[in-house]
Computed example of a mutant assay.
Amino acid sequence: MTKLLVPTLLTILLTGCANSSLFSGWGEEQAPRNSQQHSAPKMQVVNVMADPNAPAIDYSQAQQQASANLYGNAPADALYGNGSSTNARMVTKHVGDYVQNMTQDLIANMEYLTDKTPVGVTNFALIDSDLQRTNLLGYQLSESFIHELHKFRIPVIDFKATNYIRVTEHGDYLLTRDFLELTEKAPIEYILTGTLTKHQGGYLVNARILGLKSKAVVATAQMLMPFYVVDALLPSEHSMVDGVKLTQGE
């Protein structure tokens, strides 16, 4: 009985060793094949250290370029101004905002005027001219002052209004600049007028209210209007000088 068990055990041990070597050989053959199929890509190492000899980056120019790409060329020109201003910036205010502050200054030091005193508003003249020249800014200042004075309940007389409505193919109009179509007299006692002085940073606006008969100044205001605000005004015609169209009175 013992003699029969010994050969049997030897046979089992030899068979197990053969199978073990067989399986170990199969694994060794398959391992290189699998590693070749699923090998990880090599890592590309990039040096992120800044080059001390590299030129400096103009981030302001890059920001303006990014804004131009975001808004397009035309809206970006409207936002940053299209005139001769060297320090273009985002236009967050318009002429009316500055006129509002100037009107508050006028009201603060105003004399003799009441809510029953009729006031007329004229265009602002260029100070280095014969006072018969203005520009688009001079036109818009008078329009904005009419609005602000009315907000303070000061009666404003628009002397450019005619006694009739002119119906044409291009539209229906009440206002005119032809003095022959205007009434000879208007119930105006005081006039809001002023001058424009071109400044290195913009336009210096000088506003005043004076008596039509006495010529006495009863209120004054002064403010520097930056170029980027003035350049945001776009004339409807292309003949411009310094970003605005010059006109001459008669």
Rank of each mutant, 00 (worst) to 15 (best):
T15S: 15
N69V: 10
G138Q: 03
D242K: 06
I157F: 03
P7K: 05
G83H: 13
K213P: 00
Y112M: 08
R177Y: 15
K245A: 02
R166I: 02
N101I: 08
A62H: 06
M49K: 07
G211P: 01
T220I: 14
M110G: 02
D58E: 11
A56S: 06
S214C: 09
A76Y: 06
Y71F: 12
D51W: 01
H94R: 14
V46A: 03
L174S: 14
L234H: 09
K42T: 14
V6S: 14
E28C: 02
L106R: 04
S85H: 10
L192V: 06
P7G: 07
D172R: 15
E169Y: 10
A221T: 02
T168L: 09
L9Y: 08
P55N: 02
N53A: 07
T195K: 11
F227N: 00
A232F: 01
V205T: 03
G201M: 10
K93I: 00
T2M: 03
S239Y: 13
G201P: 04
D105E: 12
G25R: 09
A186Y: 02
G171V: 09
L131M: 11
L79H: 11
A40C: 13
N101C: 10
N87H: 12
F152V: 05
L174G: 05
K160H: 14
T15N: 05
P75H: 07
L182I: 13
F145Q: 03
S21W: 06
D128M: 07
N135R: 12
L141H: 01
V244Y: 01
G25D: 13
Y98T: 01
G27F: 14
H94E: 12
T15K: 11
V218W: 00
E189V: 07
N135Q: 08
A62L: 12
Y71T: 03
T183A: 10
S35R: 06
N53Q: 12
A68T: 04
S24R: 15
A161Y: 14
A31Y: 11
F159D: 03
I146A: 07
R33Q: 13
K245W: 00
V95N: 01
T11Q: 05
P75T: 08
V91I: 13
M90L: 13
P52G: 01
K42E: 12
R208P: 00
L136Q: 04
T197N: 12
V229N: 00
P75C: 04
V229G: 00
A56E: 11
E250F: 07
N101V: 08
R166K: 14
N87C: 14
L246P: 00
Y71A: 02
K245S: 04
E184N: 05
I57Y: 04
L136D: 02
L210I: 05
T220Y: 02
V45A: 07
E111S: 06
V48I: 08
I154G: 09
E143Q: 14
D115V: 06
L196V: 07
L22K: 13
Y112P: 00
A62S: 08
A221E: 00
F159V: 09
L13C: 05
L234Q: 15
T92K: 08
G27A: 15
S60L: 11
Q200N: 03
H150T: 13
T8M: 15
V119Y: 01
S142P: 02
S129G: 06
V230W: 00
Q63R: 08
